[in-house]
Every structure is written in C-alpha cells, then in structure tokens.
Simulated scan of single mutants.
Amino acid sequence: MNKPFSSKASETDWERIDAMQDKDIDFYDIPEVTEEQMKRAVLRVGGKPVEPGQRRVDLLLDAFIVEYFEANAGEQGYQALINQALAEYIHNRDLENRLR
C-alpha cells in the first residue's frame, strides 16, 4: 500500500536559490569527492550506463543556429561549441530538476 504524498507545497525559497552563486553555497558538511571515486564513477542517463567519448551523428539544424555558432566559435570550431552548449543546457536543467 502506497502512502499518500504528504507535502502540499515546497517550502523552499526558490527565488533565493535561483539568485545564489557558487560562492554563496555552504559546503561545510559535504565531503569532497576523491579522484579514486571519480575513476569508479559511471555516467548514467535514464538509469542506463553511457559509454565515455563522442559519437558521430548527422543532424539538421536551422541555418541561423549554425551561423550563430560559426560566428562565435573562434578556434575551437562551431561543432565543439554546439556540443558544449548542449552539455551545459543538460547539466543545468538536470541540476535544477534535482533541486526542485
């Protein structure tokens, strides 16, 4: 038998959390992750392990998106910049969802 959800609404001050910067976070009681722990870490998406590295894909993008990234990529190349932007989006969205 499942228990009913007991919390009516979050009491977290999300506006304050959203306004926080990294320097505002108190890490006092959070132990640091060791290099050995990171070596044993397994990246999972949807519970399934993801192999490290990159995969080649063919992708159709709107012309203005490609032009934007080509204009802003500099020496790293526009494909690398698109990859970085997508990775940051996923990490930020995932963190926000875990906090809420």
Rank of each mutant, 00 (worst) to 15 (best):
L95I: 12
T34P: 04
E67G: 05
R56I: 05
D13N: 15
D62A: 13
G53C: 12
Q54C: 08
E32C: 07
M1P: 08
K23S: 11
Y78P: 00
A9V: 07
L99A: 08
E51K: 10
G74R: 00
N92G: 11
E35Q: 09
L60G: 09
M20K: 08
Q54A: 07
V42P: 01
A19T: 02
E15L: 04
W14C: 03
N2D: 11
A41H: 07
G77I: 06
K8N: 10
Q79V: 10
A71Q: 12
N72Y: 06
I30T: 09
F5A: 12
Y28E: 11
I82L: 09
K8W: 06
Q84Y: 00
P52F: 08
N72V: 06
N72P: 03
K39F: 06
L61G: 02
D94S: 12
D18V: 12
F5N: 13
E67L: 08
E35N: 13
I25L: 14
E67H: 05
N92W: 09
Q37W: 08
Q54R: 07
L59S: 04
D24V: 00
E96V: 11
V33S: 05
R55W: 03
I90W: 15
K48R: 13
Q84L: 04
A85L: 03
L59V: 07
G74K: 01
M38S: 03
R100N: 14
I25Q: 05
P31E: 12
R55F: 04
D94E: 14
D94L: 05
D18Y: 09
S7H: 03
K8D: 13
W14K: 03
E51T: 06
V33P: 00
K39H: 12
A63I: 09
T12P: 00
D58I: 10
R56Q: 07
A80L: 08
Y68T: 01
T34F: 07
D94K: 15
I17P: 00
G74A: 01
V66Y: 02
E88A: 10
K8R: 07
L86H: 08
Y78F: 14
E11F: 00
D24Y: 01
D18L: 15
L61V: 11
V33I: 15
S7M: 14
Q76L: 08
L95T: 09
G47L: 02
A73I: 01
Q37S: 08
Y28S: 14
M38R: 10
L81R: 02
K48W: 00
